[in-house]
Amino acid sequence: MGNSDMNTTQHEKYKLNVGKIDEGFVIDHIRPGRGLTLYHDMGLNKLDCSVAIIQNAFSRKMGKKDIIKVETSIDNFNLDIISLLDHNATVDVIKNGEIIDKPELPLPKEVKNIIKCKNPRCISSIEQGLDQIFVLTDAETATYRCKYCETEYGNN
């Protein structure tokens, strides 16, 4: 048995198991460390259904990944935030324990009132009732910038 096989077996033995869900959705392949941000930014912390966040799960493709499982309908969520935060993440919609849909997550050109500019010098930090607008400025790198101060989302 080679070293890599042994590692995989040991990994399987001790891996953290979170059960399957019957109804709801799974956000998979989240870049490690972004799961908790996504959890908060999508407002999953405000739900009263079961929500599981798995951080640094083993991934053959990515090495490590975060996963979020939510036991409620996906219909009430704006999925733009997922591609905005991590455009490599995927979504599986689950019904009766089966995957019934894998919605595409295109990069939105503009997002309104989903994320907030964290630049303390930005007008959006003090102007009452101002929409928080971010604009896609580079589709290749999925870079979003605040419409007002041009600060990059994630880098502020």
Partner: peptide, 10 residues
């Protein structure tokens, strides 16, 4: 002129 960035755009 404004001390906050983006104010004239608003």
């Amino acid at each position: 002129r404004h001390f906050k960035e983006g104010a004239p755009m608003v």
